[in-house]
Computed example of a mutant assay.
Amino acid sequence: MEQAANLLQRAANSNAVINTLLAGIFAVLSVRSVEQQRQIEALEAEKDSLVKANKGLKKTVWDWKQQLFYEAEANPQNAVVPLSTLKVIYGEATPAAPVIAGGAGKGDGKSPASKIMI
């Protein structure tokens, strides 16, 4: 037991052992860093691909929206969705305020509580 303690004491004081441990730790950290760099490059490539796909989808949605507006404006009688409704859906117009029956006669100056439906 005493010999093992002496051996450990000499190893702790030996520069060669300390340098070897430090070199091993450096090698492990280097390998980990290389692996992380590969992961970063893969994620950046995936990001670029997703950005391109997202731009394509945005253009497609824009084209569909323009087509809907064109069809609703060109032939209002046969439009699936009226132009005014399309503008409200896409946020280009504010919806008309609904008329509340019996609310105007109270005259208390308070607006009725809005109901949120989900």
Rank of each mutant, 00 (worst) to 15 (best):
M1R: 10
E2P: 04
Q3S: 10
A4W: 00
A5E: 08
N6S: 09
L7F: 00
L8D: 02
Q9G: 00
R10G: 00
R10Q: 03
A11C: 05
A11R: 01
A11H: 01
A11F: 00
A12F: 05
N13F: 07
N13G: 03
S14I: 00
N15V: 03
V17A: 06
I18S: 01
N19V: 02
N19C: 03
T20D: 09
T20I: 09
L21N: 10
L21G: 04
I25C: 05
F26V: 13
A27Y: 05
A27G: 10
V28G: 08
V28Y: 07
S30H: 02
V31F: 02
R32T: 07
R32S: 11
S33T: 09
V34L: 12
V34N: 11
V34T: 14
R38E: 06
Q39N: 11
Q39E: 13
E41C: 04
E41N: 14
A42W: 09
E44Q: 15
A45C: 01
A45M: 04
A45N: 07
K47M: 05
S49W: 03
L50Y: 02
V51G: 03
K52M: 14
A53R: 14
K55F: 05
K55Q: 15
G56N: 13
G56A: 15
G56C: 01
G56S: 14
K58F: 08
T60Q: 15
T60P: 00
T60A: 14
W62I: 08
D63E: 15
D63N: 14
W64G: 08
K65N: 06
K65E: 10
Q66F: 10
Q66P: 00
Q66S: 11
Q67R: 14
Q67P: 04
Q67D: 15
L68M: 11
L68Q: 11
L68Y: 10
F69E: 01
F69L: 10
E71K: 12
A72D: 08
A72I: 11
E73L: 08
E73P: 02
A74N: 07
A74I: 00
N75M: 08
Q77I: 12
Q77C: 04
N78R: 14
A79C: 10
V80N: 09
V81E: 05
V81H: 07
P82K: 09
P82V: 09
L83V: 10
L83H: 12
S84A: 14
T85P: 00
L86T: 06
L86F: 07
V88R: 06
I89R: 10
I89G: 00
I89D: 02
I89E: 04
Y90R: 06
Y90L: 05
Y90K: 02
A93W: 04
T94W: 06
T94F: 09
T94P: 03
T94Y: 05
P95G: 15
P95T: 13
P95M: 13
A96K: 12
A96D: 07
A96S: 07
A97F: 06
A97C: 05
P98T: 13
I100G: 05
A101L: 13
A101H: 09
A104I: 02
K106G: 08
D108C: 04
D108E: 04
D108S: 11
G109W: 00
G109A: 01
G109C: 02
K110D: 13
K110Q: 15
P112H: 06
P112Y: 14
A113W: 03
A113P: 03
A113R: 07
S114I: 13
S114V: 11
I116Q: 12
I116W: 09
M117F: 10
I118P: 03
